[in-house]
Simulated scan of single mutants.
Amino acid sequence: MRFDVYTPLLLSVLLPVVSPVIGRRVAPALAARVLTSAAALTAAATTWSLVLLSAALLGDAPPVVAEAREDGRPLVDPVPEVIGVAAVLALLAVLYRVHRAVRCERATRRALRRLCEGHPADTELIVAASPVPQAFAVPGRPGRILVTSAMLGALRPAERRVLLAHERAHLAHRHGPLVTAATLAAAANPLLGPVRSTVTFLVERWADEQAAATVGDRRTTARALARAALTAGSSRPACALNFTDRAVTRRIAALQTAPPPHLWPPALAVLALGALPAIGAADATRDLFGLLASVLV
Rank of each mutant, 00 (worst) to 15 (best):
V18F: 08
A207Y: 08
L115K: 03
P265A: 09
L276G: 13
V195M: 13
P80I: 02
G143E: 02
L171P: 04
D208S: 07
H262E: 15
E67M: 13
R114P: 02
Y96E: 15
G233A: 12
E117W: 02
L115S: 06
G193C: 12
L75H: 13
L263P: 12
V85Q: 06
G274F: 07
T108L: 06
P261Q: 08
F289C: 06
D71I: 07
S294I: 02
P237M: 02
T123N: 00
V76A: 12
A188D: 05
T36N: 08
L115G: 13
P20G: 03
E67S: 14
L273D: 13
P265Q: 08
L255T: 09
Y96K: 13
G274D: 11
R114H: 10
H173R: 14
L89S: 05
L11T: 14
A238W: 01
R24S: 14
A278M: 09
E81P: 00
L268S: 10
P142N: 00
R109M: 07
A211S: 14
R246A: 15
V127N: 01
G193K: 14
I126W: 02
T47W: 08
P20T: 02
F289Y: 08
L58R: 07
S12H: 09
T257W: 10
V65W: 10
V203I: 14
P8M: 04
L125S: 10
R144E: 01
A281P: 01
R236I: 03
A226M: 10
A272Y: 13
V297G: 15
R286E: 06
G84C: 01
H119S: 08
T183P: 04
A181W: 01
A224Y: 07
A181C: 09
